[in-house]
Amino acid sequence: MDAYLPALGGGLLIGLSAAMLLVLNGRIAGISGLVAGLGRPGERRLADFAFLVGLVLGPPLFSVIAGHWPAMRIEASWPVLAVAGLLVGFGTRLGSGCTSGHGVCGLARLSPRSIVAVLVFLASGMLTVALMRVAS
């Protein structure tokens, strides 16, 4: 159980971030939406950009506090990463959200669209990994 305390603690911080952005700024902490929104003009764009700057600075802050960088093992080859990136970029826009917008924020709001989206991307992700296991 202790092995999952960092996961739970990290999750609580992510939830606190989403709650803060909603209560203070009235905004959903959906990363794909915030990133895509940078390409469109709007009064919220500067604050959205600031959120993303904070997001990028989070891991270095962690490394200062913890004394080491978080683990990051990337198994996929560059061509696979490129295909995955295209699918994630296109898919999250078509489906109006990702793990943060539909997952962290949408599930908390009991949004029917988000509940369906989360079930679909979990199933699709699990199926993809299972097929890759069979193929290798």
Binding site: I31, F90, G91, S96, S100, R113, V120, S124
Partner: peptide, 26 residues
């Protein structure tokens, strides 16, 4: 679009292990 988009996102997520939040943070 919701279901198709979430399916495509899930495939990319499974292929790479990355979704937008962790990828931007990384």
């Amino acid at each position: 679009p919701l279901v198709l988009g979430a399916s495509l996102f899930g495939i990319g997520w499974g292929l790479s292990g990355f979704c937008p939040g962790p990828a931007v943070a990384a």
